[in-house]
Amino acid sequence: MATETHEAASEMAHDAAQAAGHAAESAGMPQLDFATFGNQIFWLLVTLVVIWWVLSRIALPRIGAVLADRQATIAGDLSAAEDYKAKAKDAEAAYEKALADARRQAQKIVAEARADIQKDLDAATAQADAEISARTVESEARIAEIRAGAMEAVETVAKDTALEIVAALGGKADAKTVGAAINARLKG
């Protein structure tokens, strides 16, 4: 089987070589058939001129323009983005500033309010203090009055009581003497 295969293969190779040789003999290399050169060269030149014309008149300017357009668009977009970025930065700064201003304003308002309240408070305190001291003075006067009234009443009661007691004890007491005695006692 192996030898058979080998034989067949070698036979085939031989035949193939023969066939190839035969083909080459009959046709030669078509590349070297000079009769067709004029034809090929003529059509090649036509082809090249047509391609060159189409390229330089239509295709290349168009593609070049498209590429330039795209470049411009991209560059434009980039610069627009740059602009927007700057604007955003400005806006951020403005916002920060507004925020700081608002904070400062708020602090001012708070301080003012605090001062106002303090003032009101101080005024109210002062008024209250004044009132309290006035009341105190009044009360003291009242108390003094009451005390004086009480002293007087005590004197009267003491005199009356002393007179009554004296009378009850059977003594004869005149009011003047008793009064003097009581006064002397009370002072003593």
């Binding site: 030669g28 290399m29 078509p30």
Partner: peptide, 16 residues
């Protein structure tokens, strides 16, 4: 059989 059946014309494709 193989010898008569196989056809080798590798250069025919280049004929103008």
């Amino acid at each position: 059989e193989a010898g008569t059946g196989l056809v080798f014309h590798p250069m025919d494709q280049f004929i103008v």
